[in-house]
Write a protein that binds this DNA or RNA. Sequence first.
DNA 1: AAAAGCGTAGTCACTTAGTGACACCACGGC
DNA 2: GCCGTGGTGTCACTAAGTGACTACGCTTTT
Lengths: 230, 230
Amino acid sequence: MVKSSGDGAGAKKARSRPLDGAGDRLADARMAVSRHAVTLFLARGVSATSGDDIAAAAGVSTRTVWRYFRSKESCVEPMLAASAYRFIAPLRRWPLHATFEDFLLEDFAEVPPTPQDLADDALSMGLISLVRDEPALRASWLMVCGQAEQAFVPVVARRLDLPVDEFRVSLSAATAMAAARVVHEEVAVTAVTGVRTYTVEDVVRLLGKAIRASTAEPICDPRPRRAFLA
Amino acid sequence: MVKSSGDGAGAKKARSRPLDGAGDRLADARMAVSRHAVTLFLARGVSATSGDDIAAAAGVSTRTVWRYFRSKESCVEPMLAASAYRFIAPLRRWPLHATFEDFLLEDFAEVPPTPQDLADDALSMGLISLVRDEPALRASWLMVCGQAEQAFVPVVARRLDLPVDEFRVSLSAATAMAAARVVHEEVAVTAVTGVRTYTVEDVVRLLGKAIRASTAEPICDPRPRRAFLA
DNA sequence: AAAAGCGTAGTCACTTAGTGACACCACGGC
DNA sequence: GCCGTGGTGTCACTAAGTGACTACGCTTTT
C-alpha cells in the first residue's frame, strides 16, 4: 500500500518549502487536488468518492493523484495542514513578551486571511466535523495534527529557551497540539451542526485557554526574567 | 475503502467487551490475527506483507482478515490497544488517595503480567519504534492513542469529580494521552536501538512525570479536599 | 538555435486491497 | 428433529495503488 516514504512526491530535491507564503508549484498542484477531494468527500462522502472521481474533478490523471498522495483519504491532508499552518506559521514571529491571544489577534488584524483561505478553512471545518465517524478520515486528521505538532516544536523551543530536541519541548508541543486538536474538533462539530458560531477571536481564546491548561510550561505568556533566578 | 463503521466485525450486537480480562471469542480471534500481522510486519516490513500472507500465517481465510480489519495496517491495532489497556484498565481501580506511580507499581506487583502479555508488549514496542518512518503504521498508532484517550476519560472524570462529557475532562484526557504517546515513542526507539533498557518502574515514572507536566489538573495526585475550598 | 538534461504528467498493463453475495457449518433453543 | 443465528470460506468482482515507459516543457550548455 505504501512503499516507504511519506506521500511519494517531494522526495527528489527537498526544495525550499517556505511554509508561509505560496511559491512551490508542486505544493500548489497538490493543494488544488486536495481542495477538490475535500469538496467531493463533503458532497458525497468518502466511500462514494473514488480516486478517478478526484482526478477528474481536479483535471489531472488518476496516476497523478496516486503520485501526490499515498491513499485516497490522505488527499485531505494538504487542506487541513494549510488551515493548521495559518495558525502556526505566524507564531514563528511571536515575540516573547506577548501573550498568545494578543499576538495572534493583532496578527490576524494586520494580515487578514484571503477569501480563498477563509473558504478553505470552512471546508476544513466541515471535514473535521466528520472525523468522529469516518475512521479513515480520522487517521488523516491525526496525521495532520502530528505535522502541526512538529511545526510547533520550534515555537515552543524558542519560548522555553531550550534546544528543539529537548524532551520537555517535544512533550509540550505534543500536549499543546492535543489541546488544539480537541478545541478544533469541538468547534467544528458545534459550528457545523449549527449549535453556535465562532469568531476568530472566540477560537483564539479557546485555544489559548486549552493550551495554557495543557502544559505546566509557560509557553503562552511572557517568559519570566531569568535574572530573578540567577 | 471503508464502508462506514470502524472495523467491520463488532457492529452486530455490541456485546459486553469486558475491557479487562479475556472472554470475548471474536476479540480473541482478532487478537490472534493481529499478533501474526505484527510479527510479519516486524520481520519483513509492512509493504512486503500482504493480506494473504497475514491470513495464511494466522490460519484463516483472507476474507476473514478483511472482515476483522478495515485495512492491512489496522491489523496492528488490537495488539497496540491491548498494550495500552494493560496500563489504562487498572487505573479504573485507582483509589483517589493514591499517586499515579504508587498505585500502578503496587498493582503490577500484585497482578503481574503474563508471559504472553510481556511478549506482546515487546512486539508492540518494536512496532512503535517503526511509526516514525512508516506513515501508514503511524496512522494506526495514532488511532490507538485515540482509543486510549477515550478509555482514559472516565479515569480523569473520576479524579476530577466531573461528568465524563465535561470539556475539561476530554481536554485533560487528550493531553495526558499525548504525553503518554510521546513517552512511549521515546521509550520504544531508545529500547529497540539499544540505547538503554527500561524496567516497568522506569516507564511508570516517566509516564507520571509526563502526565503531570501535561495538564494543570491534579489527576496524578491525591485529590485536594473540597472542604478547604467550601 | 539545436542538443542535451531534467523534472513532471500521461498511458497502460498489472498487482494487491477490499467488498458483495451466497453457501456452509456449528451451536443453542424448542 | 427443525429452525434460527452468527461466524467462516469460496468466488467473482471493484477499487486502490504501482511499475515501466513515453512525451512534453523548461533550463542549461555549446
